[in-house]
Write a protein that binds this DNA or RNA. Sequence first.
DNA 1: TCTACGTTTCAACAAACGTTGATACATTGG
DNA 2: CCAATGTATCAACGTTTGTTGAAACGTAGA
Lengths: 119, 119
Amino acid sequence: MDERQALAAFAALGQEHRLRAVQALVTAGPDGLAAGVLADTIGIAGNTLSFHLKELSHAGLIASRRDGKSVIYSAAYTGLSDLVQFLMRDCCQGHPEVCTPAVAALAACACPTGDTAHA
Amino acid sequence: MDERQALAAFAALGQEHRLRAVQALVTAGPDGLAAGVLADTIGIAGNTLSFHLKELSHAGLIASRRDGKSVIYSAAYTGLSDLVQFLMRDCCQGHPEVCTPAVAALAACACPTGDTAHA
DNA sequence: TCTACGTTTCAACAAACGTTGATACATTGG
DNA sequence: CCAATGTATCAACGTTTGTTGAAACGTAGA
């Protein structure tokens, strides 16, 4: 992930409705949510949400697929983790003060080597 | 870190000059950089940088201290790692697809239990 | 085909953002 | 004290952003 894409991602997440949308989509899981349901969940108009979804999609944070009349949006897990890695990698240039506590905290959330993933 | 602060942090990082400032400050380490040096590094006017530094400080991403005539800015490592933890924690509500690859990648950057920190 | 439904696009507007120049503040040295 | 340096504040501006309403597009069923 280059700086330009990271800027777009950070800017996308720096907006209340878009952050809520991402949270809702990640929470919804790979099945995603229809645009209408998402608009209702966040509490904004459909056209307004469409504007924000386009921005999130452009930032690589969400994906979309059509299912009948509905368009299902889902979180782009790769894009999200890439963003975290960008922030951490750029921040740890010889100074792991940022990464160490973050990794320690995340280990309890998604430990790839242990059995506490469902904590 | 609550949603309001996370929003401020993301919005702060979603701006080219501010992202560059954070990167420069983190790279500089705990010693930090004087405002003038930072302005010269980024390539923007001092008053413009001051505007951005105030926003970054308000978002909890940087700290400042006076040293003679200069004001030294430094990265707020706690705020940065809190932001990563916010993004990860909120994203992993039963779906560790995001956290697992991120943790795996970060383990090589700041592994708190291993010896690959300098990879 | 037509109609209904869900979603997207478009133009327009108010609000917020980022930059500039001038000015004011804080600190140091003479 | 005064002058010089470094930084912060302020008003003004042009630009960008987020929202709204109307319209258009795509899909499914009658």
